[in-house]
Amino acid sequence: EEEVRVRSKTKVDPVEEADFERELRALVQESLDSRKLELRGRPALNMMIPMNVFEGLSSGSHHHGRGDESDDEGADEEGGGGVSVRVLVKKGNKQQTKQLSVPKGCALVQGTKQKEAAELEE
């Protein structure tokens, strides 16, 4: 397992870091506040997963990203090894999926993995 190491030839200046953190937080807070009053009542539209996704990649009916061209992509990620996920995106009103590798350790996919494992055991 190889980790991506970020070189630190010069130490990050703590004053700069604090300043940056403050600006980042302000931006997040502002973003949140600006949308708090919006849209809350609006129902979630189009959040159904399209059926062709369930049919798997073999259908060939949708565009694949380049993720599937490189097998070892997840290899250099933290946690080691990747889980292949399909990212659902909208191009205009068209739904598309694209293949992407997510590290195993990522909480995002852990839930699914556990469930899958549980299902297998059954």
Binding site: S31, I49, S84, V85, R86, V109, G111, T112
Partner: peptide, 14 residues
């Protein structure tokens, strides 16, 4: 991510 499938989407927090 979807509860059962390996499908993910971007969703805004607010």
């Amino acid at each position: 991510s979807a509860k059962t499938e390996s499908v993910v989407v971007l969703l805004c927090r607010e």
